[in-house]
Amino acid sequence: MTATADESAALAAAALPKLTLGKWIANTALRWVPPFLPTLEKAFGASTTQLTTILGASEIAGLSTVAVGRHLDRGRERIVLLAGLVAVIVASLVALVGTTFTFAIGSVLVIMGVANITVAGHSFISSRVPYERRARTIGVYETSWALALLIGAPIIAVLISIFGWRGPYVTIAVVAAIVTIVVARSAAITRPPRPDAGADEAPSIVPPPGKISAVTGRAWLTIAGAAFVAMAGLSVFAISGSWLDDAFGVPTGGLGAVAMGFGAVELLSSLSSAAFADRIGKLRGTVSALMLLIVGAVVMLLADSTLWIGVVGILLFLCGFEFAIVTSFSLVSEAMPSARGTTLALSNGIGTVARGTATIVGGWLYGIHGVSGTLTLSIGAATLSAIAFTASRSRFSRP
């Protein structure tokens, strides 16, 4: 690696804490809703199917990332990050109105914000950190997803207990505004990417940046694999709170504790990806994690009315999902090295359709068949993901 690339990687390391902080707040705004869905159902007078349908339909907002790909390839990550944080602030304020309609608007805005923050952060890291150690950096950045539950969930539970369902929305709006100022004033994030700080493993033929029509076969396989990973995880996570409440009678305080456990397992998985994915191989690690996800789904099916078995199953499920999704980000970032921003943005756009479909269909299947219907969808998606990634093996092995 050249000296210039060393400087660029150091720049990414300096910016990483602020990037992770911003993504943590955005992820908390997004992730606190499903575990506490029963609380919002009562507040809005809505059913599980209605709210999961809103959450799923709102995922279409993630398609907004397709439009920012070319800007990311030109080093404009900071602008996209700030726009995403502003969307999170507005989403929280709109949701305070307290109707199902404003909940839907808030869901659209928060998903738009999180999606753009995610691809901007991944693009920033991928343009500065070499591929052989990129999983470590992205793994650290993605601990924000787990911290949203590990730290955010118990705080949300306390806020709901003291202030009611509006407490989390007000708190997130205020904190997100502070973080927006921090990111805006960060010199490390304002500097453009180094042109020679890219990965060491570029394919022999790469398409020009910003042109979706030139996406390679390897990229499409990787994008499909990542989309199916998202579908496998989100279909179950969206109904997790309702399942724990319906099957085991877990109250709001208990949901906060369980969600905190979810966050702990996800944090362990993110850190494991950061520590081991570069060593064992990103492709091998992703496929192995998908197998663990399927094992966890089977355990959930066997839980019946036994709470501890159900919790063990969902923790195994989340462990596999988190490792797989975090590690797959590195695979996507290297699918087209000359146009990482475009590839990441396209992947997120397609992934958002997969997540939305999973949330809607998973909610419907849960309403009709119970958790077995949702888990069947999840297992099928995980299997398709493993097939797509495995089919790309020979392409990823090229120098």
Score class of each variant (00 low, 15 high):
I360D: 01
F329T: 10
P34T: 00
R340N: 04
V80T: 10
R194N: 12
A146V: 04
F237C: 00
F36H: 03
E266Y: 00
L21F: 06
R136D: 00
T352N: 15
A324E: 11
G254V: 06
A153P: 08
L346S: 05
F248D: 03
S240T: 10
T53K: 10
V33S: 01
L268R: 06
A381Y: 05
L307F: 12
I189N: 01
A14L: 15
F163S: 12
G373L: 12
A14I: 07
A83H: 04
I239K: 12
S305F: 06
L293Y: 11
I172L: 14
V108T: 07
G254S: 12
V170E: 10
V229R: 07
V179L: 09
G261L: 13
T357E: 08
K211G: 00
S288D: 02
L40T: 00
I79E: 11
I314R: 06
A335S: 15
L377N: 05
V68W: 12
A87E: 01
S213C: 02
A26E: 07
G370N: 04
T359E: 13
V174L: 15
G254R: 11
L149P: 00
L384D: 03
V332D: 06
H369N: 13
G373W: 11
L292V: 15
L283T: 03
T222E: 04
T49H: 04
G167P: 11
P193D: 03
I117V: 13
P399D: 14
F248Q: 01
G139V: 05
